[in-house]
Each structure stands twice: as structure tokens, then as C-alpha cells.
Nucleic acid binder design. Structure first.
Length: 339
DNA sequence: AATGATATCAACCGCCGGCCT
DNA sequence: GAGGCCGGCGGTTGATATCAT
């Protein structure tokens, strides 16, 4: 069945453990030999020996053909009936992650990346749930994306991927860029609410820059995340204007949307890293000012007309849910102005 | 050209919950 | 209710490709 062969990724960037189907020439032969070894090896493996490792073209064809005729499900029985020396689990995985006709291959679009970041900020490592919102993408692929790309970027920024710092960088720096790229990619259509929210300063769901008031009793500069807020819904918490409120927004805007759209990840991340450094420098300066001039903290809530802010939530820490609503919301512009 | 480091991603593993007997 | 089977999920591994030195 040619379809299967055509589906194989062109081997780009490693990940060819799936083996022979993707390889050509000597590599394929070597892989086949290895697979034969596995098939027959394993210490006098009997006829009932369960096969592991990369799937061969023959196995793929067998599985696809069987499912085409009998449908999917009942995987253990399917494996037996199809004559595959694989576990039901293995068959299921191979089908869902690779052979299914509607599996979407290739790099994630800016839209998809934005969605992944947003959904992950809400649900954490619920890969399957996240994947259900990305048609054609598998949880495995999304998981891999997160573990490779996202964690790599966290490393670049010198922070843990689960740290508040990285989450904020993601929300205020990365997501706006992705949103701009996504919007530019289909500039004729209006940006989605998610894109607009991201462009305006960070994410859709948990996108607030929170400054505790003096009443809150501390001067800790905090950008809150909302992972712990169980009752928030993605769309309901987005309050945004069309202004480019984040420093990175204005930067990329000035360089042109088309540039943003075509920028590769590395370019994007070089800028983000710079923004990140500047941002945290500004933040720590502000924190210092508040420490030295506590009265200023009392004045802060008096700041009028905070346009461009987005509402969010505080995630525990020192601020209990009861005090969350007392916290003043500030936009990045305000922070930068004060700086 | 050789070698080591890093990135990528398919596949496996263990755990858990649902269903059936 | 107990036990077994199965499917789904998240974490991890390991093979290969690519990049850097």
C-alpha cells in the first residue's frame, strides 16, 4: 500500500528509530539485518516471541490492511488475528501515532505552537487532552515537542521549564511572538482571540502581571500564573485591548509582520532572550524602588487608566485566593514606564 | 575526516482506571 | 467485592541524524 510509504517522514532530523521504512540503501539494509536479528534472536525465541523495536514495512502493511478490513480496536485480538507478533499496545501505538491516515506530519505551525503553550499552561502535561485540540497531532508528538523545543528554550533562559519565571517569559515574550507569526501567516483573516490575547501581552488564560498592593503586605514583584486555579476557563479570563503592550511586541511590530512571520525559531529566541533579560532587569529595579520607597506601593493602585492590561490570576504562593482580587493589575507598559 | 555533543522522535514501559466475569 | 484483561496516558529510553570542534 503506497500510502504508507508516502507517509514516512523523510528522515529529517533523526528520529528514524522506526527504522527501515524511512531509510534508504545501506542504512535500510543494516536496519533490516538488525531487525532480523531481533526477530530471530532473543535467546532461542519461539514462534510466540513478541517482537519489539522498529516496525518493518511488512508489519505496517499488515496492520493497515487489517484495520482497513476490520476496523481498529480490541488491539490484542487484532494483533493475533492479523498475525502480527506484536503486543496489542504496540499495534495501537503504531496505528495512532504513525499509520493513521489523518496523522499530520511536519513542523508545528505558529498557530499550533501557540495553542500548545496555551493549553499546557492550563492543563500541564495532559498531552492527550492537549492533542485532542490539535487535529491530526498525536500526544506523543506534542510531548516530544515540549520536551525538546520548549525545555531547550527554558535551558537557554537559564531557568526551569516549570518555574514561574519561564512560564512568564513564555507568556509575555514567546507567545506574543508566536501570535504575531500566526497572524502574519494568515494576515487576511482576523486574528483569533487567542492570538490577540497573546499579542497584547501574554497568553489567553493566565496572563496577568500582578503587583501586590501595600495592603497585601509585601513588595514581592510577582507575575502570577494560574495553574492552580481550577475554575478558570480559557476564554472567560481574557481581557485585552489591541494595543501592543509588551516590549517584544513593539519590537517585532517595528520590524514588520512579514519579518516576524518568516523568522525562524532561533532568530525569534535570540530576541526573546534579550527581552527576557531586559524584562527581568526592569522588574528587579522596580522591586528595589518599592523596597526603598514603601509609600510608592501605596500610590501604585492610584495609577489611572491602565490600558492594555490583561486580567489573570495568582497561583497560591503567598497570595491566597482571598487576596487575589485585592491585587492590582499592571500592564507591561506600566512596568516599563515606571522603569 | 574523525570524533563528540546535541537534537529529534519512534517506541517502550509502568501505572491507572474502566469494564467484564 | 475480587481478580483479570484491556486501553489510555505520561514518562523514559535509545537509535539515528545533524551540528560543532
Amino acid at each position: 500500500m503506497e500510502m504508507v510509504v508516502l507517509q514516512q517522514r523523510a528522515g529529517g532530523g533523526g528520529g528514524c528509530r522506526a527504522g527501515a521504512p524511512m531509510m534508504g540503501g545501506a542504512a535500510a539494509a543494516a536496519a533490516s539485518a538488525k531487525q532480523e536479528e531481533m526477530k530471530e534472536g532473543g535467546g532461542g525465541g519461539g514462534a510466540d516471541e513478541v517482537r519489539r523495536g522498529p516496525w518493518t514495512v511488512d508489519e505496517d502493511l499488515t496492520l493497515v490492511k487489517y484495520i482497513a478490513e476490520h476496523g481498529e480496536g480490541r488491539w490484542n485480538e487484532l494483533a493475533r488475528a492479523a498475525g502480527l507478533k506484536r503486543t496489542g499496545k504496540s499495534c495501537r501505538l503504531r496505528w495512532l501515532n504513525y499509520l493513521r491516515p489523518d496523522v499530520k506530519r511536519g513542523d508545528f505551525t505558529a498557530d499550533e505552537q501557540l495553542l500548545i503553550l496555551d493549553l499546557h499552561s492550563r492543563w500541564g502535561n495532559r498531552w492527550s487532552k492537549i492533542a485532542s485540540h490539535l487535529p491530526g497531532r498525536t500526544d506523543n508528538e506534542i510531548k516530544n515537542y515540549w520536551r525538546t523545543r520548549v525545555q531547550k528554550h527554558a535551558k537557554q533562559l537559564n531557568c526551569d521549564v516549570n518555574s514561574k519565571r519561564f512560564k512568564d517569559a513564555m507568556r509575555f515574550l514567546w507567545m506574543p511572538r508566536l501570535a504575531e507569526r500566526a497572524a502574519a501567516a494568515h494576515h487576511s483573516s482576523p486574528a483569533s482571540s487567542l492570538q490577540q490575547a497573546a499579542i497584547s501581552g501574554g497568553g489567553s488564560s493566565s496572563s496577568a502581571l500582578l503587583l501586590p498592593t501595600a495592603a497585601a503586605g509585601c513588595f514581592g514583584f510577582e507575575m502570577a500564573t494560574a495553574n492552580a486555579a481550577a475554575d478558570r476557563s480559557p476564554s472567560s479570563v481574557v481581557t485585552t485591548t489591541a494595543t501592543n503592550s509588551s516590549p517584544c511586541s513593539s519590537r517585532t511590530t517595528s520590524s514588520g509582520a512579514s519579518t516576524a512571520a518568516t523568522a525562524n525559531d532561533d532568530d525569534c529566541w535570540a530576541a526573546i532572550q534579550q527581552d527576557h533579560d531586559e524584562f527581568w532587569s526592569a522588574a528587579s529595579n522596580l522591586q528595589q524602588q518599592l523596597l526603598y520607597f514603601p509609600l510608592a506601593a501605596d500610590l501604585l493602585p492610584m495609577q489611572p487608566d491602565l490600558s492594555g492590561w490583561v486580567q489573570g490570576f495568582s497561583e497560591g504562593g503567598s497570595s491566597s485566593p482571598d487576596t487575589t482580587h485585592q491585587q492590582q493589575l499592571w500592564s507591561l507598559d506600566d512596568i516599563w514606564r515606571m522603569h
